[in-house]
Design a protein around this nucleic acid. Structure first.
Length: 748
DNA sequence: CTAGGGTTAG
């Protein structure tokens, strides 16, 4: 009678615990007169299974204090709790306890231990336990190991383990199949996946919803959408996971419309959608411009309370940012209660994507102040924003923060560092980062090729390219942009022609507008205008503005009116509000003595409301940016700066400097011209640099337009007379002035 | 009466 009673109490506790009604289960548990280890295990299992691992763990130790020995049941439950919460330390305690109580040879407990270690990312511990089990005849043991490999990213071992299991005569079941299918999906092992599919058909395990969803996902990822669709249509369970996989599959293949169509169909059928559905559909929406649909999906998310899922809110931020709705992205971000590093990254990247680089930098600083550790994603993103602003000091600080954070130095961080240093004119630092990287992929090589090219080191750029080829890395589309850029900036006509040809002939890469622009620049500026025009006419793609700009610039150098007019007319059409083609064409007319025509162009500009972008130079010192425009009087140290310029002019004239009056404004007299030149923004900046940067340090000047010819000559003399390294980055490239010589070889 | 292994996103 007493036995019967105990059984009833336990059944009731278990029923409440299993259905998740934990408070009621707990109450019943307290009322149970004779608690056995079964009573304890039932309650512990309830807590562990329904997301309260801490509670389950506490009860487990209380159970020991109450005089009960652990059982395979309570140990299994509590190991599961450690696995889902990733508590390796607790798991290790349980492991020790299991060894002391001789439970470490029990199949249930060992399976739980393997699973716990695997889920806590200690795969070698899991593997060790697995291989030391004397008799591996248990399904679950193998399943746990296969899943462990699969979830730790070791697809090869997962597949080997699956094959070994079958070799030993142990059949797969509905637990091991989803894992092995996920493995195939992860590495696009479509042939292996198809074989598994055949086994599933023969075995009858295809009735499991898990197996069906995993199959759909496997095909969506590696066998093509048609097969995935076929599996889905043949399946008798219409589960949300399969739909999610299809939506994601369409998105990855670039069929966003199809993905959105599936989502609408789910909605129309009143299907239950989950957080996976929303993140996938938001990702699809990110590459469309359908703001209306985006907003209605957002409404649906708010109505169903899915914004509480961090991944859904993160996807919302990303989606709005990519749709250029940065204000909406900010609103979602502000509304979030528990932002993680991904939330911050999405908004930081969003700002950068929309051209708000300063805001991106500010937000990154806010993030570090909030105590969020930057990860490699946000670091790569912020480094390119720093490069965009040539914010060298900021980039250096990010580099430092990342080193301190202890994160592994990933390829993407290394690549962004190379690019940041190169774009800030510190090519030696870029080279140092390159050499410190363990693996150099094509992106890494290309970053360095481009870096040397930008910094006027064509020889090094070409050498880097040759080293890349020698190391067995194949160049890609972007590598050739860097390589041809190097050739064009050093006037290497022969090499340029050769590399351009090898692009298609050796590597089968179709040249794009960027490559043509470099080639036309190279041919045009070296005086081969006819060849440049011929190449333009042969282009397999529509010439874009950069191509016409290259041709127009060449026409200006060689005073070719006819071709220049044609290039300018095309640019007026393509970029009607850009002042550059107007200025260039007017200059060509002016240089050819056609003053009336030049005046007409200036008039045209005025009537269309286009203003020439004013020249602006800036110098960053101690975290402060000092900005100068031509004939600027706004700087607090202006009188010092102007007297420094007078001194500079006096000294460099003595050293042989002759002002190049052709660089001056056309409508002033000779003396006015000389004075106007002396107060160009870059000269103000260099005077300030001479005053503020200690002797020995490089003076770094950034300019929004191309450096003027006279300033270029002056900089050479200044570097000689004042023994300074001057780094000037203009809108086109870097100029490193040392001892009277410029890295560009006076060709830019 | 209590227990172990499974699918989809970033």
């Amino acid at each position: 009678m007493l036995d019967r009673d105990e059984y009833t109490w336990n059944t009731m506790v278990a029923a409440y615990a299993n259905s998740g009604r934990l408070d009621e289960a707990k109450e019943l548990f307290e009322d149970t007169p004779n608690k056995s280890s079964v009573t304890w295990s039932s309650l512990i299992s309830g807590y562990c299974r329904h997301g309260y691992p801490g509670e389950g763990f506490k009860l487990f130790w209380r159970m020991q204090l109450d005089g009960h020995k652990p059982t395979q049941f309570s140990l299994g439950s509590v190991l599961r709790a450690c696995a889902v919460s990733g508590s390796l330390q607790r798991g290790e305690q349980i492991h020790g306890y299991a060894m002391k109580t001789n439970f470490d040879l029990n199949d249930f407990v060992v399976t739980g231990l393997i699973d716990m270690y695997a889920k806590c990312r200690s795969i070698s511990e899991a593997e060790y336990l697995f291989v030391t089990v004397p008799e591996r005849s248990n399904h679950a043991l193998w399943s746990a190991m296969i899943t462990g490999y699969s979830q730790n990213g070791d697809a090869y071992k997962a597949m080997e383990c699956f094959k070994e299991m079958r070799k030993q005569g142990i059949e797969f079941d509905e637990y091991s199949l989803p894992s092995i299918l996920a493995t195939c999906a992860a590495v696009s092992a479509d042939a292996f996946g198809a074989q598994v599919h055949c086994c599933i058909i023969r075995s009858g395990y295809g009735v499991s919803a898990f197996v069906q969803s995993a199959l759909v996902d496997m095909y969506a990822k590696c066998g093509g959408l048609t097969s995935a669709k076929l599996v889905m249509e043949a399946a008798d369970i219409d589960g949300v996971v399969s739909w999610n996989s299809m939506i994601m599959g369409c998105m990855r293949q670039g069929c966003e419309e199809e993905a959105l169509y599936l989502f609408k169909k789910m909605h129309g059928r009143d299907m239950k959608m989950d957080d996976f559905t929303y993140t996938s559909v938001l990702k699809s929406l990110a590459s469309t411009t359908d703001l209306k649909l985006a907003k209605s999906v957002h409404c649906l998310i708010l109505k169903t309370r899915f914004e509480a899922y961090r991944l859904v809110s993160n996807a919302l931020i990303d989606m709005y940012a990519k749709q250029r709705e940065i204000t909406c992205a900010c609103e979602v971000f502000e509304y979030m209660l528990d932002k993680d590093v991904v939330s911050w990254t999405s908004l930081v990247t969003g700002y950068a994507h929309n051209g708000f680089f300063e805001e991106a930098l500010r937000l990154f600083s806010d993030m570090t102040v909030e105590g969020i550790y930057p990860d490699e994603m946000v670091v790569s993103s912020i480094l390119s924003a720093s490069a965009e602003l040539t914010a060298l000091e900021f980039g250096q600080q990010v580099h430092g923060i990342f080193v301190k954070s202890g994160h592994a130095f990933s390829a993407s961080v290394g690549n962004s560092l190379i690019s940041m240093y190169a774009r800030c004119g510190c090519i030696e630092d870029a080279d140092r980062v390159f050499n410190s990287m363990q693996v150099q992929g094509v992106i890494t090589w290309t970053a360095l090729i481009m870096g040397y090219a930008r910094n006027g080191k064509a020889k090094e750029s070409l050498e880097t390219y040759n080293c890349m080829i020698a190391s067995g890395v194949k160049p890609d589309y972007i590598s050739f942009i860097g390589l041809l850029f190097a050739c064009s900036h050093a006037c290497l006509v022969q090499e340029g022609r050769m590399y351009f040809e090898s692009m298609t002939k050796t590597y089968g890469i179709k040249p794009g507008p960027e490559h043509y622009a470099s080639m036309i620049d190279l041919l045009g500026r070296s005086g081969k205008l006819a060849e440049a025009e011929e190449l333009l006419n042969q282009m397999s793609v529509e010439p874009d503005p950069t191509v016409w700009k290259a041709l127009l610039a060449a026409c200006r150098v060689h005073k070719n009116l006819e071709l220049g007019e044609r290039a300018a007319r095309n640019l007026f059409k393509l970029e009607p509000m850009n002042s550059v083609p107007y200025v260039l064409l007017a200059n060509i007319y002016f240089a050819s003595g056609k003053l009336e025509e030049a005046a007409k162009i200036w008039g045209l500009m005025k009537s269309r409301g286009i203003n020439k972008e004013p020249g602006c130079s800036w110098v960053g010192i101690n975290g402060q940016v000092h900005t100068f425009v031509s004939e600027d009087r706004g700087h607090p140290r202006m009188s010092d700066i102007y007297s420094k310029i007078d001194e500079v002019m006096r000294l460099i004239k003595k050293a042989g400097y002759v002002p190049d009056l052709s660089s001056a404004l056309h409508d002033v007299d000779e003396e006015g011209k000389e004075l106007g030149l002396a107060y160009h923004s870059e000269k103000l900046a260099v005077a300030f640099g001479l005053l503020a940067v200690p002797q020995g340090g490089p003076i770094r000047i950034y300019k929004n337009l191309r450096v003027c010819g006279d300033c270029h000559i002056a900089m050479r003399h200044i570097s000689q007379v004042f023994s300074r390294h001057i780094v000037l980055r203009d809108s086109n490239c870097f100029h490193h002035f040392r001892e009277g010589v410029c890295s560009c070889g006076d060709y830019w």
